[in-house]
Simulated assay, not measured.
Amino acid sequence: MLAARLTEAAAVRSRGTPQAVSAYVRDVAAHGPEQAGAAAASAMGHTVELLWRRGWLPADVVAATPRSLSTLVVDVVAAQTAQYRQLHPRWRQQLAEIGADVWWTGAHLPLWAERKRLSLVEALARVVDLIAALMVLPQLPHLVPAPGESFARETKPTGVDARVLIRVRGLLAKAESTAFPEEAEALSAKAQELMARYAFEQAVVEGIDDRPQDAAAHRLWLEAPYQGPKAQLVDVVAGANRCRAVFYPKLGCVVLVGHETDVEIVTMLSRSLQVQAEHALGGSPSRGRAYRHSFLVAYAHRIRERLAGAGAPAASADTRLVPVLAKRDAAVTARFEAMFPGVRVRRSSVSSADGWGAGVLAADRADLHPGRRRIAG
């Protein structure tokens, strides 16, 4: 079969002998656009289906794919998921986020090649590159049911209310764009306070309704470079918001386990803090790798120090929260230990005192204590 030839070519490619791939590609291309396109769709589709069974979600697959192949993999994901009527809401959400849509009719590859101004041989070479990149991806913990698998329907809305999200994202966007550290500090603090207050208000409601407490799990992908220090920062924010985090250094992603609302808060704040840290680093373009690595490690370390023991004033002010948060913590711990029974703590070292000092100063400006107010005068 032609599809098998493409998969075999990808295996050859992944073994580090790309020069041997051209013969496979020319052989498949010789059968014409229609047959070659069908073979490409079959080979790529089979590869992606295997990833679904290995625990990968649409956003994960796109994040792990080289950017030069991003449009191709999005189309493959769209084609494969379109075959299923039963998709978990997380899948539908991620498909919308990555823009997965079946925009073509008939054979996909010739039309995609035309869009990219590639010959059939060049397009098939991209197909082989994509399969080679995906076929080596490892097994991951299943976060939600795969396409076609049954799942419990949500009877109550989960996550952060859309109106709160709009306000928080607006505050964080301003914090990321301002050139004034004090303004960024105030905006970040306000965003954290708003989200913390919302999370506790929601917990009170759930306690009154006596809803069962479940733990969600999400993957957060980190931009290279310095993914290790960035993962530490995510872990800091996760701990401050009742979540647990595990870093996959070879993949560059962090798995967050926590209540759905808390995980969403951690994701937003972590991304914003990373942007702000990068802006602070932008003022030192001539600094080397050791300085930047040390800066980010110190930034995360100092944020952890400032959040440790701070707790949440809103939580202690309402005794109704105690049993709800205890149930949530038990649910989070149970799922985390089931997913990661052998997890280990990883530590980082630094080699630039200047970078460490600058990172601490930058973290001091990032006041994220919920409810904290500046005192004028």
Rank of each mutant, 00 (worst) to 15 (best):
C253I: 02
E185I: 00
E183M: 03
K156G: 11
V254C: 06
E193T: 02
F247N: 02
Y198C: 09
W221E: 01
L165W: 09
L222M: 03
I166L: 14
W221K: 04
A199R: 07
R197A: 10
V237N: 02
P212Q: 15
G239C: 01
A189F: 10
V246L: 11
L251Y: 02
T155E: 15
R211S: 13
R211H: 14
V237F: 00
R242T: 02
Q192I: 05
V160Q: 07
G252N: 09
K190A: 11
V254P: 04
L256W: 07
V236W: 08
V164E: 15
D210F: 10
H218T: 14
V246Q: 12
V237Y: 00
L233H: 04
A216T: 13
C253G: 06
E223I: 01
G207H: 10
I208V: 12
R244Y: 04
P212V: 13
E201V: 05
K174E: 12
V160I: 14
P181E: 00
D209C: 08
F200K: 13
L172P: 00
L194R: 06
Q213C: 13
V257A: 11
T158F: 13
N241C: 06
E176A: 13
A238K: 08
V205W: 11
V168C: 10
K250Q: 15
V234M: 03
G239V: 00
A240H: 07
L171K: 14
I208W: 06
Q232A: 02
V168D: 09
V255E: 12
R244M: 09
A238P: 14
T158S: 14
A173L: 07
G258K: 01
A216L: 11
R244Q: 11
K156Y: 13
D161Q: 15
V246D: 07
D161V: 13
A245Y: 05
K230F: 00
G170I: 10
A240F: 03
V255H: 04
A203I: 14
A245N: 08
Q227H: 02
V205T: 13
L172S: 00
G228S: 15
M195Q: 09
G159M: 09
